[in-house]
């Protein structure tokens, strides 16, 4: 199945060498070293030689006409959101090109390769920290996995989510693999950035914001169980701090969201019993 989809993507993108990096239910993500229309380096992107192609293949179980409409509108809404984030100054991948008809979005590549050879998602980085921590069993303060750098990164993640929420946007699929870490000039982990806005939407509801946080909390608990409690603590601290910078309104939105988060924790992500 997968090979077939890759072949379809390749037909739409003749002459461009594609490498699969991930496949979800909705889309396949490729990397490539070819820019869609530039031979020189694009302006203002971190990684100037590697690009992301996100391809939403047609779904055989949908009526073709409906399918092409859905593909077009989802592709366009993700691309529009990337542009919106650029205008708001939120760190996110930059839109390079779009082909709504075939469900293709070109973005710049965020992240770098960690020292264990994996890509710098928050998940991979936390795992790397955990493994390093295990190597020093006498360190009872857990100064690697729960050190200043980890605390800073988790707080920044919280602040980033808060920034999104304050603009009335919910991410919709916050997991530790949808958070990438960017490198400083010396190739050390510096700051997080969010990726994959395929399920994002505009919402002013505390419920939606709380679900966003809950999904991330669950993702951290299941993939990084040893230190999840501390990580979630940092996360919420960063989330609160970013709201406080926005004065009374920010503080109010924050209390509302966190109160709702407690409800969501008790009942799970789905509000109705029908979902």
């Amino acid at each position: 199945m997968s090979a077939e989809l890759v072949a379809t993507a390749q037909r739409h993108l003749a002459g461009i060498s594609l490498e699969v990096v991930s496949q979800g239910a909705e889309a396949i993500v490729f990397t490539t070293e070819t820019h869609p229309y530039l031979k020189t380096k694009p302006a203002l992107v971190d990684n100037k030689t590697k690009f992301i192609v996100k391809y939403r293949p047609p779904k055989p179980y949908r009526h073709p006409r409906l399918d092409s409409q859905i593909t077009r509108s989802r592709t366009a809404s993700e691309a529009k959101l990337l542009q919106k984030l650029l205008l708001l100054g939120v760190d996110a991948p930059r839109l390079l090109a779009m082909d709504g008809t075939n469900g293709i979005i070109w973005m710049d590549f965020v992240g770098f390769t960690l020292e264990d050879g994996t890509v710098s998602s928050l998940k991979n980085w936390l795992w790397l920290m955990e493994r390093r921590q295990e190597a020093v069993p006498e360190d009872h303060a857990k100064s690697i996995a729960l050190g200043a750098v980890a605390e800073d990164i988790m707080k920044r993640v919280g602040a980033m989510v808060a920034q999104l929420h304050l603009e009335g946007i919910v991410h919709g699929d916050l997991t530790s693999s949808n958070i990438m870490l960017k490198a400083s000039k010396t190739n050390e982990v510096e700051r997080p950035t969010l990726i994959d806005f395929g399920l994002s939407s505009y919402s002013g509801l505390a419920e939606d914001r709380a679900v966003d946080l809950y999904v991330l909390e669950r993702a951290l608990t299941s993939t990084h169980s040893v230190y999840a409690k501390e990580y979630n603590g940092f996360l919420v601290a960063g989330y609160e701090a970013a709201h406080k910078l926005k004065g009374k309104l920010g503080a109010k939105a924050c209390t509302e969201t966190l109160r709702r988060l407690e409800d969501v924790r008790l009942r799970g992500r789905k509000r109705s019993m029908l979902g």
Binding site: A43, L44, A76, Q83, R94, L95, L96, A97, M98, G100
Partner: peptide, 18 residues
């Protein structure tokens, strides 16, 4: 800043007609 403007303008062009 030419680079900053370019990113915005490229986005506007690509999103044209959506």
């Amino acid at each position: 800043d030419v680079e900053e403007l370019t990113r915005i303008l490229v986005g506007l062009t690509q999103l044209k007609g959506t």
